[in-house]
Simulated scan of single mutants.
Amino acid sequence: MIANFFNKTKPIVFFILASLLFVYYILAIANFKFEAFSFLWLAQQFGFFVLIIGFLLISSFIIKKNTLTQNNSYALLLLVLLLGTFYEAMFDVPIVIANVFLLLGFRKVYSLRTISATKLKLFDAGFWFGVAALFYAWSIIFVLLIYVALIIFERINVKNLIRPIVGVITPIFIYFIYCFAFGSVNDFYNCWEFNFNVNYTSYNNLKLLLPISVSLAAVIWSIVTLTPKVSVSGIHIKRAWRIVLNHLIFAAIIIAFAPIKNGSEMLFMIFPFSVIITNYLRISPSENFKNLLLYLFLILSISVYFL
């Protein structure tokens, strides 16, 4: 059964999941994204897929390094299934690039649980979030997650408050100098057009309505079930849980204001969704329920290509 197979981390699991992701990618191209064939087009598609694999690898590293879940592959499985479900996310290049850089920043934020190299972590987190914002302006909201982490990990002091700001400003200033030097300052200003859209009628489409409804129901149920249990756990677990929840909140804000609502914006939500639901699956005593939930996400990820 699917729950039993992904209950452990094995080298073959990542290969299987990468292959499944490739199948989703090919299905999406064949059904919705195919253009006139050329070697340039083929190279672009290959490059996009490499970015997605990078997203998966960095997510896996963050989860394992910071023990956000136990020793299982449910989070990676859910990441792949959700990517397959919200297939538009695999083809929106600015959002994919922004999320890869955001993950590099999240890696530093979550690692603040240890006291080593705090100064560098704060600068690096701000730096990567600043780079991400150059590709997708709303990404700048995640800078607030750094300060939430400082509060949660009790690292508040004047220098620590300033370091993320310096980190954020650094890539933005470098890009401004680059644009100024080559007479393309307008390109810099265009990066900071915070266009927004609060019209959610596109979510009435079954391709989005069904997976969003199921994902929200699963994550809300997981939060309601897990939070009381986490509150009586060790301090490290409680702190990590609070950061994941705040991560989810900031992702929801970005999605709420995203100018284009076609499913690609859901990429911001996939990481915290997967971590939260995985932790619920970990405590679920019923193997049948685990299988049911995972098969439900699998069926959803396939059905969107036929709705």
Rank of each mutant, 00 (worst) to 15 (best):
K65L: 13
G130I: 01
N204P: 15
L300D: 02
S184T: 13
F142T: 03
N246P: 12
P211I: 14
L21V: 10
A217W: 09
A117C: 09
N195W: 11
L245I: 12
E88A: 15
I115N: 14
Y295T: 03
H247Y: 09
F123D: 03
V100G: 06
I146V: 09
Y295N: 08
Y25Q: 08
I16Y: 07
F106I: 00
N72F: 03
F91W: 00
S38G: 09
N7F: 10
L226I: 03
A43E: 09
N279E: 06
Q44S: 11
V168H: 06
I169E: 15
Y147S: 03
P285D: 08
K64I: 05
V50L: 08
V80M: 02
Y295P: 06
L79A: 07
T201W: 00
S274R: 05
A36S: 15
S60Y: 09
Y136E: 00
I63K: 07
H236M: 13
R155W: 01
I156T: 15
F173N: 11
F14L: 10
V232P: 11
F135G: 02
N186T: 12
V166D: 06
I162T: 08
I58A: 07
F86K: 04
K10M: 05
L20K: 07
N205T: 06
I220L: 14
S38R: 07
V275D: 13
F61T: 02
L51R: 07
F37L: 12
I151V: 05
L294E: 01
I162Q: 07
A98L: 00
F22L: 13
T114Y: 01
Y178H: 10
L82F: 12
L76M: 11
I29V: 08
S116P: 13
I276C: 01
T67Y: 15
V50E: 07
G54A: 11
L292E: 02
V224M: 10
V158L: 15
Y305D: 08
F61W: 05
G263C: 03
S111R: 05
W241H: 11
P228S: 09
K207L: 10
K8F: 14
Y147H: 02
L82A: 09
L112W: 08
V109T: 10
R113E: 12
V224D: 10
A218G: 04
L267P: 02
A117T: 13
A43S: 13
Y147N: 05
V168I: 06
D92G: 12
I277T: 09
L17S: 03
L51Y: 09
V80C: 03
N31V: 13
L77D: 00
L81R: 08
Y305M: 12
V166G: 10
Y24M: 12
Y136W: 04
L120G: 07
